[in-house]
Design a protein around this nucleic acid. Structure first.
Length: 149
DNA sequence: GCCAACGTTGGC
DNA sequence: GCCAACGTTGGC
């Protein structure tokens, strides 16, 4: 089993949206590395840290898990949508998404708090210049965060 | 709004 | 295949 951190802008999709929906397709990823994680590595049951980014209080706000393995992201075919990709066709889709199920909303663990723990110093999300919206999390890092939540 | 980091695009 | 220009991310 693997562990992941998935970023979402709360103005796009917040923890409370997630509470309302229970589960959601993680569509709209348009970065190859993040796509490859979903398509090639994420398996049903993998644990996910749900993270709010690009907002007043960035940080972890929930625990989730992968509920459906990757399949072609429908939004790439929607010519009127924000995520349309003119180079993608149903025969040769370019983008994929998994679905994730909320396990529970947690307290907000702010970015500054994550940075304060030496145990998390090498976490991918905390490295300079990190921009990936989906990153693998070390099992020890995941266990540590779980304990602090 | 600024700016560092870094991915993507496209001309050559 | 190189690389400059451009776009996006995301914390501050």
């Amino acid at each position: 089993m693997r562990y992941w951190l998935m970023k979402s802008e709360p103005s796009e999709y917040s923890i409370d949206d997630f509470v309302r929906d229970g589960s959601t397709p993680w569509f709209g990823v348009r970065n190859y590395q993040a796509r490859n994680f979903m398509r090639d590595q994420m398996k049903v049951g993998d644990k996910v840290l749900f993270y709010h980014s690009s907002c007043a209080e960035p940080g972890i706000t929930g625990l989730a898990e992968v509920s459906v393995p990757a399949y072609p992201d429908a939004s790439q075919f929607d010519a009127d949508g924000d995520y349309f990709d003119p180079k993608a066709t149903p025969e040769t889709p370019r983008w994929f998404n998994v679905e994730v199920r909320l396990v529970k909303k947690t307290r907000l663990m702010p970015l500054a708090e994550l940075r304060s723990y030496p145990e998390l110093a090498t976490m991918r999300i905390l490295q300079r210049g990190n921009r990936l919206s989906i990153t693998p999390v070390d099992p020890a890092e995941y266990a540590f965060i779980l304990k602090k939540l």
